[in-house]
Amino acid sequence: MGKCLSCCQSNQAGSVPEKHLKHQESSRTVEFSGASVPSNNCGGSQILRSSNRELSAPVVSSNGEMHISTSSKSTLGFAEKLMFHPRIPPIRSGSTDKKRSSHSGRDYSESKIHALFDQYKDSQEDAILSEGIERLCQDLDVKPEEFRVLVLAWKFGAEQMCCFTHEEFVIGCKALHVDSIQGIRSKFPEMLAEVQNPEKFKDLYRFTYRFGLEVGQRILPAEMAIQLWKLIFSIKEPSILKRWLVFLEKHPNIRGIPRDTWNMFLNFTESVGDDLSCYDDTEAWPSLFDDFVEFENDQTNQNVLQNKEIEELE
């Protein structure tokens, strides 16, 4: 009792015994299951650091200090209540989330696309040929000669008419994010809206020439070109189209349309006026356009002469 009082008196005088200093320095934290518990300064209680030893219940000394003795055979007792659960690592938003987002973003099934292709494919070829194209169009509620079918072939990147290869069909359905007849049908308004863009229509227009060629052909036959011009301009027809087609039909000697002539005709329809008054024969137009303008002027002059003759007769 006197020893404890002397310790208190010496603490009040500022001289702390060396053994208490060492005891305090070593009594900062206690580790439980790999986690350290900070010391609690309230009431002057301190928790000893122990890595491999078990802790017993705290003991309050006569001078008011709380001590936790260690013993390899003692149970945890009160210290058991101070146990902390191991820290749970945070959930990382890494590759797992990316996989989930990419999977959830896929709104089509590749296996369904292959199964859809098999419904229409030819029995001898790994492609959808004429008969299969007709059945496909029937299920899509369209006609094979419709503008929508041409746009669909453009989206599929078809190499030739009346044929969808396995690769073209699968890649096209993936690009449209569809795997069913209903899915393809639902995309028609979107595709038609897309080709309203001048650049997209220009791409479709140039695709149509290649689409009309048969295997080994380099020049589009005039009869096929006439049909394709009617088809590609079925939504928005240039004012000179009908006169142009009449000119071709009245000149059977024009057997084929070169690629350059086909491509330049789109520019031609946009450059000349309804009466061809804006046509400049000094520009680098194909010679076939010169023949057309001359033919149209002759037709106009003949109409004028005929009208005069009629007036004179009256």
Rank of each mutant, 00 (worst) to 15 (best):
K3H: 15
S6K: 14
C8S: 14
N11I: 15
Q12H: 14
Q12L: 15
A13D: 14
K22V: 06
H23T: 05
H23L: 03
T29D: 05
T29H: 01
V30I: 05
V37C: 02
C42L: 10
G44V: 13
Q46N: 10
I47A: 11
L55F: 14
A57M: 05
V59T: 10
V60F: 07
V60S: 01
S62C: 14
N63S: 12
N63D: 14
G64A: 02
E65C: 13
H67D: 10
I68N: 03
S69N: 13
S71V: 07
K73Y: 05
F84R: 13
I88P: 09
P90V: 03
G94N: 11
H103C: 07
G105T: 06
R106Q: 09
D107V: 15
Y108C: 06
S111G: 08
I113L: 01
H114E: 13
A115S: 09
A115C: 10
F117E: 02
F117P: 00
D118K: 13
D122A: 08
D122M: 04
S123F: 02
D126I: 04
S130M: 04
G132P: 12
G132E: 08
I133D: 01
I133R: 03
C137V: 12
Q138F: 04
D139A: 06
D141G: 13
P144A: 01
E145D: 08
E146C: 09
E146P: 00
G157N: 12
E159T: 12
M161W: 08
C162G: 01
C162Y: 04
H166V: 00
E168F: 08
I171A: 07
I171F: 02
C173W: 05
K174Y: 04
K174H: 05
H177Q: 09
S180P: 01
S180G: 06
Q182T: 14
K187R: 05
K187I: 01
P189D: 10
E190Q: 14
E194S: 08
E199T: 12
D203L: 11
R206K: 12
F207C: 04
T208G: 11
Y209W: 04
F211T: 02
G212L: 00
E214M: 15
V215S: 01
E223A: 09
M224W: 04
I226F: 05
L228K: 03
K230F: 07
L231F: 13
I232T: 13
S234Y: 01
S234T: 07
K236Q: 14
E237M: 08
P238Y: 03
S239P: 06
I240R: 14
W244D: 03
F247N: 03
L248E: 00
E249F: 04
P252A: 04
N253I: 06
N253D: 07
N253P: 03
I254H: 07
G256R: 13
I257T: 10
P258K: 09
R259V: 08
D260T: 14
D260F: 12
N267I: 11
N267G: 13
V272G: 01
L276W: 13
C278P: 07
Y279T: 08
D281L: 04
T282Q: 15
A284K: 02
W285E: 14
W285F: 11
S287Y: 01
D291C: 15
D291W: 05
F292A: 00
E296V: 02
N297M: 06
V304K: 13
L305Y: 04
N307M: 08
I310M: 13
E311D: 10
